[in-house]
Design a protein around this nucleic acid. Structure first.
Lengths: 357, 357
DNA sequence: TTGTAAGCGTTATCAC
DNA sequence: GTGATAACGCTTACAA
């Protein structure tokens, strides 16, 4: 015998406001719906999964009973029986990075419309939690969207997976991204157009795919203008504000500064660009009068910063939406339609100006 | 008969690397562990839930079998049977607000250490999704941490609930917050100490608890200095960058400007403060030379902005941790120990300076 | 088109 | 201290 035994469950119709001070109402179960609609539980279930296989009259009766009782299928029972969770895991490299929030919205909206939920995991590089997360994913979600540029681990190897933004070279999975290389090239072209000839690059983390692409675009842009890339003008960074601050010393007179100082800097993201500009102003240099600075991403603060930041706008919500759609296609057994990279836009603001030196 | 029938499941020991090109390995089940340890499934289950009730020798055998097979209990089965999900829902008013990310980390760390997972929901004010979220919560989580200042809805009324940051007056639930009123009062005292006498308040959303508290603290601060609160110096806002920008017009000469312009502004959050400072600089006013501006929260950008922002630092990670601990206490049937408000710190930076007028 | 019934993997009760 | 076993609520193959 079970602990609940044959106890009658507190039950009432949804919306029957009178029951407010009674015992907590247990949610309706499929058997309640079946009884009310005078059908079997199989038919109730079919109305949800394959409405076309149910006679219209029957279907209407079931639908009414569902509405009257406010029945929502118990997800645990559903998952246990069907081995489908209707959940998608989204893995971020850093939840504190504001860049991701709008992408998450795009994903969430699209998944929700299809009846899927989203679970967010924050997984720094080389986190010891990756293995645990893979084990978690295997049981708790039907698919994984990776924004951190690395596979989750062997446990989750065979589940539907999509890479977003940070692509994973060689992985045989759908990959959704912008053309980082072309975008970076455009930034450099913009700086060149302003007369800059010595243009530095404040890089992202070494080995990061985005950085590899953006660095390549930076070199493309220099070569387009007949300029030779100079390794002394490529400065290490890691997408943090602090990296931007640290880079400022290279533009200031004194030891550690670049031999012939650049007049413009292309930073691999807005956060570093803002750190750099702030530190330069602190040190008495004017942006863009002394140095032009461009970023990447167009985060919210880019427009509000002073000077407002020239940057590359990524279609963040669309990136999320497209990735979610690809995931839904995979989960439905369809081939995800291969789209090319999503379009970006160069947003010219006040942080870049004519070369004065 | 079931569709899976009596098919033998692909199975192997965890770490037996040889099976790589075989069919995907089905995860171990409790029966596999029981068989290997030569005990019943009941004993395996007991080793997890009540190890002290199992003989040490038996326990050791079970633990070894669990390790060998890499068994992790199937969460859906567990939830279905025990009616506990081991998940907590965290409801945010706005995922794009960077203020929350570190709080989330504090919550997540604490929950994870206790074997609980976290699900994040982004729920704007008066969202039509609130009802759906309450229904979701009822089935999918054991408790709810609310950061948005409002109860979820009748469906989730009787589940363990904690309010964090935005308290819910009158609700009989644990509430974790800082002392917004005292902190605001300190900001005003700081401005008064710099010689300011006309101090404006750029407010948060009307009716918001945080705003009510901070506005009260603002008035406290004025009264402490023998200054009379002036309604014309309380400007509407809504925590967005745009609200800060809009407020700038009140400090500029021309129609719509305050009759006798203030020399300092206490903004109810950093985002508005930054919007305000940016727009002032744009218009040719200097901060803090012409106007001092203080914010609230100490988000990451506050320190990097130029001028760096004077603001109130909230112990965000601790707020998350304490709320999660209170939740765990409730879930374990313990009374959450009532702590007072968490301490804040006034961080004086460059955006506030001596009154010059 | 609809119903019957097995079974998803676990936990909790009861009996020993 | 341990085992047998009945649920938890649902989906689906198969029968009718």
């Amino acid at each position: 015998m079970d602990e609940r035994g044959t106890t009658v469950r507190a039950r009432t119709l949804a919306g029957a406001g009178a029951a407010s001070d009674a015992a907590p109402v247990a949610p309706a179960r499929i058997t309640d719906v079946a009884r009310l609609a005078e059908v079997s539980t199989a038919t109730v279930s079919r109305v949800l999964a394959h409405p076309e296989r149910v006679a219209p009259g029957t279907r209407a009766r079931v639908e009414e009973a569902v509405a009257r009782l406010g029945w929502v299928p118990n997800p645990a029972a559903r998952t246990l029986r069907s081995q489908k969770t209707r959940m998608v895991l989204v893995v971020l490299p850093d939840l504190e990075n504001v860049f991701f929030s709008r992408i998450l919205r795009g994903i969430e909206e699209t998944l929700a419309a299809a009846g899927y939920g989203m679970i967010i995991a924050d997984l720094g590089p080389a986190s010891p939690r990756a293995g645990a997360l893979a084990a978690f994913a295997r049981r708790q979600v039907d698919g994984v969207i990776l924004l951190n540029g690395r596979r989750l681990g062997p446990e989750a190897e065979d589940m539907p997976t999509i890479a977003l933004c940070e692509t994973i070279p060689g992985a045989a999975i759908p990959q959704i991204a912008i053309d980082n290389r072309a975008a970076a090239r455009r930034v450099v072209a913009h700086l060149v157009g302003l007369g800059h000839r010595r243009i530095a690059h404040l890089a992202g983390p070494e080995g990061n795919v985005l950085e590899i692409e953006r660095a390549a675009g930076y070199e493309d842009g220099l070569r387009d203008a007949g300029l030779a890339p100079d390794p002394a003008l490529v400065w290490p960074g890691d997408y943090t504000l602090e990296a931007g601050v640290a880079a400022a010393s290279r533009l200031l007179p004194g030891p550690g500064s670049a031999p012939e100082r650049p007049t413009a800097v292309f930073a691999s993201n807005d956060t570093m660009a803002i750190g750099l500009v702030g530190a330069l102003q602190e040190a008495g240099l004017a942006v863009p009068d002394d140095v032009s600075v461009a970023g990447f991403d167009d985060i919210e603060f880019a427009a509000m910063y002073r000077p407002a930041l020239t940057t590359v706008r990524q279609p963040r919500r669309d990136l999320g939406r497209v990735a979610a759609e690809a995931m839904l296609a995979r989960l439905a057994g369809r081939e995800a339609s291969a789209e090319g990279p999503l379009a970006t836009e160069l947003v010219v603001r006040a942080s870049t100006g004519p070369a004065r030196r």
